[in-house]
C-alpha cells in the first residue's frame, strides 16, 4: 500500500462529505457529512505522518478529533433547538432568513 491509496481514500471521504453537506436535506445527515470531511482530513494527516516519519501529523489528528467533538456538542444542541421550535430537521423548513429586497 503506497501513500496514494491512503490519499485516495482520504480524498474520497472528504468529497463524499462535501457532496453530502451540499445535497442532503436532513440536518443530521449534513452534520454527519461534516464529520466525514474532518475524518478525511484526519486520514490524510496520518498517512502523511507515516510517510514522512514525522510525529506532528499524528498529533494534528488527535487535535482534530477533539475539535470534532467540540463541534458535535454545539452543533447537536443547535439542531435539537431547531427541532423543538419547528418540529422538523429538514433544511427546507428553515428559510426565514433571506434578502428582503425593496426598491
Amino acid at each position: 500500500m503506497s501513500i496514494t491509496h491512503y490519499l485516495t481514500l482520504a480524498i474520497a471521504l472528504f468529497s463524499i462529505g462535501l457532496i453530502g453537506v451540499v445535497l442532503r436535506r436532513n440536518l443530521l445527515v449534513a452534520f454527519m457529512s461534516i464529520e466525514l470531511m474532518l475524518n478525511g482530513a484526519n486520514l490524510s494527516f496520518i498517512a502523511f505522518s507515516r510517510y514522512l516519519g514525522d510525529m506532528q501529523g499524528q498529533m494534528a489528528a488527535f487535535f482534530i478529533v477533539i475539535l470534532a467533538a467540540a463541534e458535535a456538542a454545539v452543533g447537536l444542541a443547535i439542531i435539537v433547538l431547531l427541532f423543538r421550535r419547528q418540529g422538523s430537521v429538514q433544511s427546507s423548513v428553515f428559510q426565514n432568513l433571506k434578502d428582503k429586497v425593496g426598491v
Binding site: 472528504f14 453537506v21 449534513a30 461534516i34 470531511m37 482530513a41 514522512l52 506532528q56 482534530i64 454545539v74
Partner: peptide, 20 residues
C-alpha cells in the same frame, strides 16, 4: 455552524496537503 464547520474542514484538508 454548518458553513463555518465546512470551511474549517476544507481548511484542514488543505493544511494536511501542505503538511504532506
Amino acid at each position: 455552524f454548518l458553513l463555518g464547520s465546512v470551511a474549517a474542514a476544507i481548511m484542514l484538508m488543505g493544511i494536511s496537503f501542505l503538511y504532506g
